[in-house]
């Protein structure tokens, strides 16, 4: 049985042309292509201000082969809800052809967790038929790696520096996926481009969902994570295998764990490939590493309890063809 997502992607026209200026190893472009190529219908893309926006459209050229709008930093959700409202209004009056169009917003964690949270919350509450994708690289990378509320505990950023008296970010990250879920929207999922079939499958479900869908996608960033560009997708997988970034979905309130690692790796394996955590290994910061590990463990325990007996049977490499592991 051929995989429907892969079949579609193989026939899909290129939504975002090469020649953009995203860094080598940036996962944002990978995420964009995996998401858009999982849907047959034409899409309108909205972009929050940020890396993806800056790197894909500078007059007089654009990387976008699909209709695209960038408005400002805080309002990608509201902007796209305006496009979607216009679509409904114009279709209702028969002023545009009765043709199905899908709407997808891309915002970084700054534009989603922080400055754009209110705008996104409003859109989720109002129930617009659109997909919101957060590419979460855990800091304000476009402006030079400043901390955001998505930055993990202990990460060294330019506004939460590791110094003589400090050990990087002192606070835990915000659980944006849970905030989205609390809006009671029909589809919420967490995914990673390292497990591309997981992401494409979820993107497809998100587009098929009537109403707002929220995808929180981990997006490794060689610049901000101080990691090797060739390690980006390795990091995207390790985040999942260490259970730091569990893969799950909540469809119409039904929680499903979509990936259960055969072997839960220690979080150190994820941390040690990233320069932003280097200070944790250089000085006596074992307590902070322990704290990070115990945070991951607690969260993972909650996820497992929530999944109950519905833990996926397709876990691990045995089903690698289906899930791209």
């Amino acid at each position: 049985m051929p995989n429907p997502e892969l079949l579609l992607a193989s026939k899909h026209s290129e939504p975002m042309a090469s020649g953009h200026s995203l860094c080598a190893g940036c996962a944002a472009g990978v995420i964009v292509r995996q998401v858009i190529m999982s849907v047959e219908d034409p899409v309108v893309v909205a972009n929050a201000t940020g890396c993806l926006e800056v790197c894909t459209g500078v007059y007089p050229v654009t990387s976008w082969n699909v209709s695209w709008i960038h408005n400002a930093f805080a309002n990608v959700a509201a902007t796209l809800s305006g496009v979607e409202s216009a679509y409904r209004a114009l279709r209702k009056r028969g002023e545009i052809p009765a043709r199905e169009i899908k709407f997808v917003a891309f915002g970084g964690d700054g534009g989603t967790y922080d400055i754009g949270l209110q705008s996104l919350s409003g859109v989720m509450e109002r129930g617009h038929d659109l997909v919101y994708v957060c590419y979460d690289n855990g800091a304000y990378m476009n402006t030079g790696v400043q901390r955001s509320s998505a930055t993990p505990l202990g990460a060294n950023t330019s506004t939460s520096p590791a110094g003589n008296l400090t050990s990087g970010k002192a606070e835990l990250r915000k659980d944006m996926t849970a905030i989205a879920e609390a809006h009671g929207i029909p589809y919420v999922a967490q995914s990673s481009p390292g497990y591309y079939m997981d992401l494409m499958h979820k993107a497809r479900r998100a587009f098929q969902t009537k109403g707002p869908a929220f995808l929180n996608v981990l997006s490794p960033c060689p610049l901000g994570w101080a990691s090797e560009p060739t390690d980006s997708l390795v990091l995207a997988r390790l985040a999942v295998d260490t259970c730091m970034w569990p893969l799950f979905e909540i469809a119409k309130g039904q929680f499903s764990l979509t990936y259960l690692p055969l072997e839960k790796k220690p979080v150190v394996e994820w941390l040690k490939l990233q320069g932003r955590f280097r200070h944790l290994f250089q000085s006596d910061h074992q307590n902070l590493i322990d704290q990070i590990q115990s945070g991951v463990d607690q969260n993972w325990q909650k996820i497992l309890e929530r999944a109950g007996s519905a833990v996926p049977s397709f876990a691990g490499p045995a089903d690698s063809d289906r899930w791209g592991y």
């Binding site: 309108v44 909205a46 709008i69 408005n71 400002a72 805080a74 309002n75 509201a78 902007t79 796209l80 809800s81 305006g82 496009v83 979607e84 409202s85 216009a86 679509y87 409904r88 209004a89 114009l90 209702k92 009056r93 545009i96 209110q118 705008s119 919350s121 409003g122 509450e125 109002r126």
Partner: peptide, 28 residues
């Protein structure tokens, strides 16, 4: 009226919706 009322959560979003809708070809 046939108009789509978008009861937003702030004026910043009101004008953001307006920009999106106008770019989509709507009268706003």
């Amino acid at each position: 009226m046939q108009c789509e009322l978008v009861a937003v959560e702030s004026e910043h979003s009101a004008l953001s919706v307006a920009v999106g809708a106008a770019a989509a070809g709507a009268r706003v």
